[in-house]
Write a protein that binds this DNA or RNA. Structure first.
Lengths: 287, 287
DNA sequence: GCAAAAGTGTTACAGGTACACCCATGC
DNA sequence: GCATGGGTGTACCTGTAACACTTTTGC
């Protein structure tokens, strides 16, 4: 069992001359999902250890907490510390493509949504090391994105945290350096990634207030009860089913598929599909 | 008269090996004001020429359009092109401090508000040159900020656009390389700064919908008519005075100073002061 | 007095909330 | 039948838009 030491931080880097290098730029992504994928490992926030998740509930659809994938760093600074998926920006790749590539390398799936969050570049982040500017993104994984098999590792770019690439080791599905954590029970994070996660969480909640993002956690078709459960999980309080129905339908973004969901011991619920619409410029995955 | 040539762009840079350097990071700021400062130069969007602004209306308070300060680049790429105030990030300076310093170097005043906007890093920005990532800020100058005398140039950092510093020349108040332009009549801009300005404008309008930023264009005390005029200028449509009064006062952010504004040929208007409140984290000038 | 803008009152409407009630299914 | 959640109807509350009206100044 790997012991979880105090983060080594920048003090471990004996390269004070790095202070005079230009700032390094990296992309980091906070990804949210209602459930880790089937083959994923889950992390223990106390020990920092990760183990495979023997998924018990197969059809259970209890949307309760949010999960976030993290990557364990293998090099200083912050070696052995968990960090957000990300990495440096190659010269021929857009910011959003870097976020996508590094996220896919860690989760081995493409997210259902991706949007720029904020850029962090405080000075204290880099007391002794090279200055690091982090452009943070946030992403969502829906049921559909997590349902299929994981992508092969192949010649994929490394999921290494932030600015410190390392070769991805291990066979698909059991990389001990990638694990999912419950959003409210995270281990100590490298750099200022804890601050980034907190900011992403507040933005996610804010966004569900005036925008329609809850559906992205679900599959292509869903019942209004499922959509409401997701909304309640994010907002943190109960929502009146009757009013939620009317307001959701009045928005015009939900399309009745005509199909219904059977099997439950009550009246079958109608299945809806979300209507594709053009996103705001500089937002969404097509940024 | 300096002729306005087609932007030289990156083609003028014969350094294709720059492609393999790490991305450069710069901060650029879109600053808004209702009026250029008294000693400022105004720019002609057609010729690119700037000339001192003999301010005619002294007490005129007609809030009609928004003004933006720009800096003329003196070096390639985009030499002779106008660009947003900004510059590279020193290793010991936070992002917001870099934005503040470069903005003060150009406007020679501190803004009344400053907030991060978005980070731009598309690949096509840097076809032949070094990759450039721009972290954009937007700022507001109120009456008070622009009222006093300009700060001395001193040992101030250079206002040079984006990633290409150059020594600031000229005496205070007549630097021909800094000029204010009307926000809807801008000259061709360097890099993708036109896109950044457009995004900043849309965010400014959006922000006045659900937030209180209009007051930052004004001095410490103001009448409701002034605040309404600013709101109308930003929103682009008329607002009912009676309803605006009630809604503004109901917010609880306005404090009646007890004083009134005399001199106009109608009933004197009460003067209000804006109530200081804690801003959202990662927003505002104290980011 | 007259014009102009400050400031108040009132009504109508739209959207959200709360909650009573009916409907359709599994057991 | 009965429990359970899907789905509908409706009264109430609140914030906003529209606009008539009064008040107070300068000329």
């Amino acid at each position: 069992m790997r012991s979880m030491t105090v983060p080594a931080g920048y003090a471990a880097v004996s390269a004070s001359e790095r202070r005079f290098l230009p700032p390094a730029v990296a992309v980091s992504t906070v990804a949210f999902a209602l459930q880790p994928p089937a083959e994923a490992r889950i992390g223990d926030p106390a020990t920092g250890e990760s183990r495979p998740w023997a998924q018990a509930a197969a059809a259970g659809d209890d949307a309760v907490t949010l999960w976030i994938p993290l990557v364990r760093r293998t090099r200083p600074p912050f070696a052995d510390c968990w960090a957000l998926p990300g990495g440096p920006i190659p010269w021929d790749e857009t910011l959003v493509d870097t976020a996508l590539r590094t996220l896919r390398a860690a989760v081995r799936r493409a997210p259902g949504y991706l949007e720029q969050l904020y850029s962090f570049g405080a000075v204290e982040r880099s007391a002794d090391a090279q200055r690091l500017v982090t452009i943070a993104y946030w992403a969502l994984y829906g049921e559909d994105e997590l349902a299929g098999a994981a992508e092969p590792v192949a010649a994929m770019a490394d999921p290494g945290a932030s600015d410190d690439p390392h070769p991805a080791a291990g066979d698909p599905g059991s990389d001990p350096n990638v694990a999912w954590f419950s959003a409210d029970r995270l281990p100590p994070l490298a750099f200022d990634h804890a601050e980034i996660v907190a900011y992403a969480l507040s933005r996610l909640r804010l966004k569900t207030e005036y925008s329609a993002v809850a559906h992205r956690f679900l599959g292509e078709t869903f019942t209004l009860a499922q959509l409401r459960a997701v909304t309640e999980a994010i907002r943190g309080h109960a929502v009146d089913p009757a009013n939620f129905r009317r307001q959701s339908l009045a928005q015009g973004y939900l399309i009745d598929t005509g199909e219904t969901q059977t099997g439950a011991r009550h009246r079958p619920a109608r299945l809806y599909r979300f209507r594709l619409r053009t996103e705001h410029p500089n937002e969404g995955i097509a940024s």
